[in-house]
Simulated scan of single mutants.
Amino acid sequence: MELLLLSNSTAYGRTYLDHAMDPISEILNGTKKVLFVPFALADHDGYTAQAADAFSPLGVTVTGAHVGDSIDLTREAEAIFVGGGNSFRLLKELHARGLTRIIRDHVRGGVPYIGSSAGTNMACPTLRTTNDMPIVEPPTFDALGLVPFQINPHYVEHSPDSTHMGETRSKRLTEFLEENDVPVVALREGTWLRQSSDRLKLDGSSTGGVLFRRGSAPEPARRNTDLSELLEAQVRFDQRDTYS
């Protein structure tokens, strides 16, 4: 599979997707048509227009998955970009439109998949490591399952100068691992995961990310870290695939 999973779509001081245009151009590899999935935001037309503006310097045409028959558009897509926003709203709409298995099968068949934030959450087995508020209730937390591990975008560490006494992001991910034995890759801003075939690498900002595993201390993951070992569970994961 060809995956580009961005922690965020907008970096501080830069325009939408500007920080990630090099890996986007690489994964598209000459593809000139992208299907944009805008369902994480309410304004589908405006969101699609924003994506189209960002892709235009690459000579790429963007079509919104909400324009016409979503299933037909997805089946015909040459590349798929799932934008960020609210993960619960996005997943609910994907299930409502019958797109989860179609996207998954299309991407497994070789169509490039780009996700940012909520779109990156969708590539995981489940929604359960999102940061978002559950503003709607999807029928299931099962997501696309393109990778056999979880991702936490927008990862931030607790500041030692902060007086906030609530749970830190690290604490919340530790709680997740108390109930679920699956690795979590926490991506700081400006970072991404790039999968090509059976190779997986963390790239982007020098701030890197953090790898959380059950029963182990969090492990720093720097830029250019090879995380291909996390894909080894994909075959076992696919064998228990029960998604609709």
Rank of each mutant, 00 (worst) to 15 (best):
S7R: 04
R172K: 13
V62N: 04
E76T: 05
T207R: 13
P134D: 09
N180W: 03
R97M: 03
D43I: 05
V182P: 00
S228V: 08
H44N: 12
R172H: 02
S56T: 13
G204E: 13
Y47R: 04
Y12M: 09
R199A: 15
Q150R: 07
P112E: 12
E157V: 10
Q239G: 07
V107K: 00
N224H: 11
G145Q: 12
E219Y: 05
A123M: 08
S56G: 05
S244I: 09
T242Q: 11
G204F: 10
E93L: 07
L58E: 09
P139Q: 14
M122W: 04
M122Q: 10
P148L: 10
A143T: 07
E167L: 12
P153Y: 08
A217L: 12
S196R: 15
S159N: 15
I102R: 01
S228G: 15
L58T: 10
F88A: 06
T61R: 14
F149L: 04
E178S: 14
R213C: 11
F55P: 02
T100G: 00
P160L: 05
P183F: 11
Y243K: 03
S162T: 10
D72R: 12
T48F: 01
S244R: 06
L99M: 10
T163K: 09
L99W: 02
F39T: 07
T174E: 14
G119E: 02
E219T: 14
A42W: 05
T61F: 06
A11L: 15
T63A: 04
T168K: 01
T31M: 03
T48M: 02
R108L: 04
E229F: 08
L90Q: 08
I80M: 08
Y47A: 08
R240K: 06
I24K: 07
L127H: 02
G145I: 05
V82S: 07
S216L: 07
G84L: 02
T100S: 04
A54G: 06
R213V: 04
G13T: 12
E229G: 14
T48G: 12
R172Q: 10
T10Q: 13
T140Y: 13
G46V: 05
E137Y: 03
D43G: 11
T15A: 12
G208A: 09
V147W: 04
I24V: 14
A54L: 06
S70E: 07
